[in-house]
Design a binder for these strands. Structure first.
Lengths: 233, 233, 233, 233
DNA sequence: TATGAATGAGTTTTCATTCAT
DNA sequence: GATGAATGAAAACTCATTCAT
């Protein structure tokens, strides 16, 4: 590569573009390696090799291994949010949208679960997770769900007693766990059935939600019984 | 522990007992360190120091670091299953039992979440997770839930369309995820509220078909009164 | 084990005998392990296990690993010398005796070559090899050859210009080397042919001056016939 | 090594040259340490220190300790073969050439005997010694002898009954053994005398090699006596 | 910017040896 | 004498990170 070629205006890539290409190549390579071997078993040399750059070059773009991992997760979440939102926009009605989100999430998690395991390893270390870039990106992602769930709630499709954040934890938690057991011991293609059940559960709670007088009393009595029982331990 | 069981009065412990104590001391120390620092950041030297033994001693009891981690998880699951079952036995009715299991699970996971993160690191490596000791212990634990959930299903308290294993994944998944978000950004003491919502979600799908009758609540209250009386004697 | 049983006169072994048995058992086990794995790859625990004693017991009989190795080699050389001398005594004429020694040596070395590799590892460390016990035992062994070779020289069967010690080095050196190449790349059963050639080389230099007379051969055959007759009685 | 080969005058070495220097420095250091302390007693840290590099640097050039030892032996054998062949080429006549080879070998072995002891430790481990690089290098070396010995045989200077490989084993075996006893208990400078005797032995065997009728009968009778005698044991 | 050789702290693991029982 | 659990010094090897070119 001669220096003269760099000065021409009609060259295909600007210096900035080339730099961005490199950065992306490194992130892509890191994502694959991290996802294949987990954060601790992956080595920087391996990642550099996969990216087609020298060991030292990685440190020009990323301060250290953890920083690189953060960038990988950031890229992952950004893409995830984007495709999630795009899919939601294409659909009508909260139920269809949530179903899409569920399927979309499970597929992506299934392909990248080892990547996602890095999150607590990396970010929880920092006392200041809230406020961190990664936290914000994760927030952006779940907001896609939140918006749809809010509409569902407004339409009376979900149980008004369950706060949104809890619904969200149940939604994502069930899927993350489900993906793992599917990977381990179940056929891979139960995602659709899993999603149907999960979504119908979330929506079904409201079907009969018409508390009457005696029901309320019973509920309160049950709650009292629970509390007494737990104290008995 | 009675002293009478020892053959010689002038020595507090037999050699065998001391060996067992040591093994337990090492497991205990390892559990604490693993839970504090995660598998990869914990060092064997650190664990040995915490257990009050020399570095080499750990290797008398455990073949290597992974083997030690396996023992830690085995001990954890065994205790978890035991206390779960004990708590279930003390309660009447699937709903109360499931509520107990949920609270119990969340409390334990909250204190040991980094420990539980070791599981995929260790056991997924083996191609034969099914059939591994750890798999069996985990199985034993979820079976406690399965039994209760089965009764609930038989009583028509849950949605008959949702298979048991899916209910299980939703149950445990929601909690594991919930614990994390609580640790990160929410007040620690939302567990009760979270559990109430999760359980009501699981049961709610049929709430209208077979409402909890006054009989059940009365029975539970009577049972609680009995136990309180016994305790106060 | 009660003390009373030790005081009885009719017991099969005296205390001293039992101690000697143990010592021998340890040496035997050590010999096998050393020969199988070499000095550095063999572990004391392994040897103790093979000998059927506890780790610490080995150190009652031998100061340390090197000391044990020395004892093993001493036992080996003692036996080697003994069987060499016995075989020589049974034969008549230097040539037959040397041939026997050669075959005997090669067979033993072939079975124990890794054992013999310990010698330089152990004894050369000491600046005072001459004067060491092992040196003396090795000396005793080669003396068996020396005596026969001296007779051969006196009978003019060997080249009078070659000093005895050189003949000895050639003799043993050729065999030790030959055994190795046989172990590595040649059929195991070339020993006889190798010996014939080596011995004929040593003797051949004078083959023309004093050809083996018919008398000698006749004498040997007569001696053999005698012994066969004795054996058949 | 000429300076003209470098592209820039102001730098003494190119990066590539420095890398090669380092590799050689490590091999040289390793050779010295291995030769002084033997494979197992030498430590990688010690070798690194002697080579003037950090511990980790050694592992850039050699996969592990065994690999380093292999490189040391390879370098040793390559040099040995080269100087042997050069010396042979300078001389005329098989006898003079063999004498040179003998002296050359003994001098080199005397300075490096502990190095050569590594060979069985390293290469015998591999089931496939034949075909290994080290085997080939060793082969190349003995071939220098083989070629000369073949000429000697063709000129009728050696006993035609002794196969070449046996002559080779006797030649090298006698010397390796001789070096050891010289190191241990004899004056160092007996090499020349040893070589003269060994070579004359190898060549003398043929002096009188003209088997006549009665001689053959005697030989056969002797062989029979041998066999009978060995059976008598 | 890019390179990749060099670094060296840090880790796991082994094993000869000791010593309380 | 016998035991075997405990010790802890070593040693091999790894890898994130740096820096001269």
């Amino acid at each position: 590569m001669t220096t003269s070629s760099k000065s021409k205006m009609h060259q295909s890539k600007t210096r900035r573009e080339r730099v961005e290409d490199r950065e992306e190549a490194i992130i892509d390579a890191a994502r694959d390696i991290f996802n294949e071997k987990s954060f601790f078993k992956a080595t920087m040399a391996e990642i550099a090799r996969a990216a087609g750059v020298a060991d030292g070059t990685v440190y020009i773009y990323f301060k250290n291994k953890e920083d690189l991992a953060r960038a990988v997760l950031a890229q992952f979440y950004t893409g995830l949010t984007q495709s999630a939102q795009t899919g939601v926009d294409k659909r009508t009605g909260p139920k269809a949208q949530i179903k899409f989100l569920a399927r979309h999430h499970m597929r992506r998690v299934r392909e990248n679960w080892r990547l996602l395991e890095m999150l607590p390893l990396i970010d929880m270390t920092m006392d200041t997770y809230e406020g961190s870039d990664l936290y914000k990106l994760n927030r952006d992602y779940v907001v896609v769900f939140d918006r749809v769930a809010k509409v569902a709630a407004e339409q009376g499709l979900t149980n008004p007693d369950t706060p949104l954040w809890m619904l969200r934890d149940i939604f994502f938690g069930a899927m993350d766990y489900g993906v793992r057991t599917m990977l381990l011991i179940r056929q891979n293609e139960m995602i659709n059935s899993f999603v149907d059940n999960l979504v119908s559960l979330i929506f079904s709670s409201v079907i009969a939600h018409q508390p009457t007088g005696p029901d309320n009393v019973l509920k309160r009595l049950e709650s009292i019984a629970d509390r007494l029982e737990n104290k008995l331990e």
